[in-house]
Design a protein around this nucleic acid. Sequence first.
DNA 1: CTCATTTATTAGGCATGCCTAACAACATAG
DNA 2: CTATGTTGTTAGGCATGCCTAATAAATGAG
Lengths: 216, 216
Amino acid sequence: MEADTPRIEEYLESIYKLQQEKHPVSTSRLAEHLKLSPPSVSEMIRKLAGKDLISHSEKGICLTEHGKTIAKKVIRRHRLSERLLTDILGFKWDEVHEEACRLEHAISPEMEERISESLGNPKTCPHGHPIPDKDGVLITEKVRPLSELKAAQKGIIVSVFEEDPKMLQYLATLGLMPDVCVRVEEVAPFGGPLIVCVSGSRYALGREVASKIKVK
Amino acid sequence: MEADTPRIEEYLESIYKLQQEKHPVSTSRLAEHLKLSPPSVSEMIRKLAGKDLISHSEKGICLTEHGKTIAKKVIRRHRLSERLLTDILGFKWDEVHEEACRLEHAISPEMEERISESLGNPKTCPHGHPIPDKDGVLITEKVRPLSELKAAQKGIIVSVFEEDPKMLQYLATLGLMPDVCVRVEEVAPFGGPLIVCVSGSRYALGREVASKIKVK
DNA sequence: CTCATTTATTAGGCATGCCTAACAACATAG
DNA sequence: CTATGTTGTTAGGCATGCCTAATAAATGAG
Ligand SMILES: [Mn+2]
Ligand SMILES: [Mn+2]
Ligand SMILES: [Mn+2]
Ligand SMILES: [Mn+2]
């Protein structure tokens, strides 16, 4: 019954992440995220459904409880790997995603626990996303995208929903990282950029980017 | 021209290790070490020869220069992984082989360097085997097996050529680890055991095991 | 409502790596 | 020298995961 390959783990991980954003996960969005052709994904979807890891109705792809459990384990290993890479090996937050994406499939439960312990059981990855605990319990803070703030409102960055190294590097130069306080100075109309103030400096920030920065 | 899969890396790594011991590496020994069927190995051998990674004459399998270069890279990653596992994550030396054998294929050149730096560029793995440097240079100390020592001779353990966790655990309880001084008290005749003295205690040690412990 | 685009699936392949069964080649013990 | 066991290879398969081309189904703009 159990037969989890790295590829299956990777699909479940992606489905989980996509579910976070917009609810119905489609074949095409999944194919795009995984950088695979739609037929490849279509085929795997059928297999995952056969293994009772997802349900595949007309309204999209959904993880089953079993699928969600596995996805959270993969995500735990991914995020712990990221922390290992930044906190112990000195990587920057924009360098860790791809590396962690490989490591997550090569880590035993024992190593997972040792990493967690060695790091003092961290609660989040370097991008601010919560790390599911050993039992799959995931504490999600109530957040909203920076793009929803009105002029003069401020918030503390909780997480940055972005994987692209270039973008992460850019955000780091602006100081837009978890735990940092941002104030919205101005919101340009017609979907224009936000003017934000971060530790004394002002920057113009596109709506697209701002929507990926979650604040509380 | 380049097309290195984890499996190819694993084969080259095994061939390299087997070459260290007895010279002519045979299909069957390789199959046994890799825990694969002889036909599977036979097939891969042909492929590796086609990629100019090994030469396959009647007198056995030999790594080419190119093959040796790749093998040493894999071994560097393996041994650095072992050090990471023991020195930073708190694993014991008997718990790291299998784990490292997976990690070695999931580590980028950048991560390899970061691990090495973070550990202070270690020269050996926890079992005392030398870690090839960035450029593949490998410093091999002149050693001889403990089993070749005569009564009253002593030596310092350099390395332990053993992968089996049970055996490593056993050796650790006796204190037979790198940098430890051993004195041979007695050598039983007809291939019998050695009586050795390690930090004040005496133990009987089979020839087989003793031959895997290298001293200087 | 209809035609065109987007989205999903089928069909047919291919590469990688593994397996078992059968056979060939060789060594060597009797 | 022959029978036997060891070693290696061929032949034929299978599972996994990916691809392109073609087709079907759904959507939505005019
Ligand atoms: Mn991943
Ligand atoms: Mn992250
Ligand atoms: Mn290995
Ligand atoms: Mn080692």
